[in-house]
């Protein structure tokens, strides 16, 4: 007999876990869809964001939330500076541009992980917050952990803002034109470097900020990045490569699957079930669950 209280709590846990994945998947999907960069450094941006939270929060009254605007600005600037380098290695006469981008970002990821490990050592660091503590108990439903709820709202809001920018502004139109055909976009007078830097900077800013939220939810650890890189890949495969709205569906599917498998089947079966879903989606619907992404090849 299924306990209804536990069942609804597992649904809440799964949805909010999915919300955490959405915060990472949005930027990653944007980077792939617009810039055609498979960014292996996504998890390390999360990790560095979390460490920025751990280091800067004590300067703001031990409140990680106040660090987020700083992380947004810093990561946007750093992302905008890194993008021309990625553009450089993925264009021109170089063979396999996608692979070149992957290798470049893999190197970046290794550098970031090694740098944090050297500076901060192997220990985990707490990202303190007195605003986002505890949970809100809703009678008949369950408990909504505050930090996870806010993280999920942040992720979905980020997605909405990106969607608005892409589909309702001239800058967004320029970015979509670049994604469609770089050469023609350039011929139409679009400053490709500028808009690509904006897109990559926005992706880095969102992902770094997600790192602060994730740090407040769990903690900051030098080894945490790889896990989020793997989940970012899961997200874009399920969402459909480069299809932003699919990210929410993918997050919900991943979160709920993980939660229900852990409680009703076995904690040890979670990765098995997740990989099984990925394989089935790749076999049956390579363009993602909704079939609207690019084909995974």
């Amino acid at each position: 007999m299924v306990d209804i209280g536990l069942f609804t709590q597992i649904v809440i846990n799964g949805l909010l876990l999915g919300g955490i994945y959405v915060t990472i998947g949005v930027g990653f999907s944007l980077a792939f869809g617009v810039l055609e960069v498979v960014d292996f450094a996504v998890g390390e941006y999360v990790m560095v964001g979390a460490f920025m939270g751990a280091v800067l929060a004590p300067l703001f009254g031990a409140e990680g939330v106040f660090v987020i605007p700083i992380v947004l600005v810093v990561f946007f600037a750093v992302g905008a500076l890194i993008q021309p380098l990625i553009h450089h290695v993925t264009t021109g006469d170089r063979p396999h541009p996608l692979l070149m981008g992957l290798v470049f970002t893999f190197g970046l990821a290794t550098f970031l992980r090694g740098g944090v490990l050297t500076i901060f050592g192997p220990n985990s660091q707490d990202v303190p917050s007195s605003l986002l503590t505890g949970g809100i108990a809703v009678p008949g439903l369950g408990t909504f952990p505050v930090v996870r709820t806010v993280t999920a709202v942040f992720g979905v809001s980020g997605l909405v803002v990106f969607m608005y920018y892409l589909y309702r502004t001239r800058g967004g139109m320029a970015i979509r034109a670049i994604a469609e055909d770089r050469t023609n976009a350039r011929l139409m007078g679009i400053n490709i470097n500028r808009y690509q830097s904006i897109a990559y900077g926005a992706y880095a800013a969102l992902t770094g900020s997600a790192g602060v939220f994730i740090g407040m939810t769990f903690n900051a650890s030098p080894g945490m990045g790889l896990q989020y890189t793997a989940f970012a890949f899961f997200m874009v495969v399920l969402a459909g490569m480069g299809y932003l709205p699919g990210v929410i569906i993918a997050g919900v599917v991943l979160g709920l699957t993980q939660s229900f498998t852990a409680v009703y089947i076995s904690g040890n079966a979670v990765l098995l079930v997740l990989f099984a879903i990925i394989y089935v989606v790749l076999l049956v619907s390579p363009a993602g669950i909704l079939g609207k992404g690019e084909w995974a090849t």
Partner: peptide, 19 residues
């Protein structure tokens, strides 16, 4: 009594225990 992988999400572990 249950074992979990290292990277499990502990909200599910805790929810089952809380229950």
């Amino acid at each position: 009594y249950e074992l979990f992988p290292r990277d499990t999400d502990y909200t599910n572990v805790v929810s089952a225990a809380q229950n």
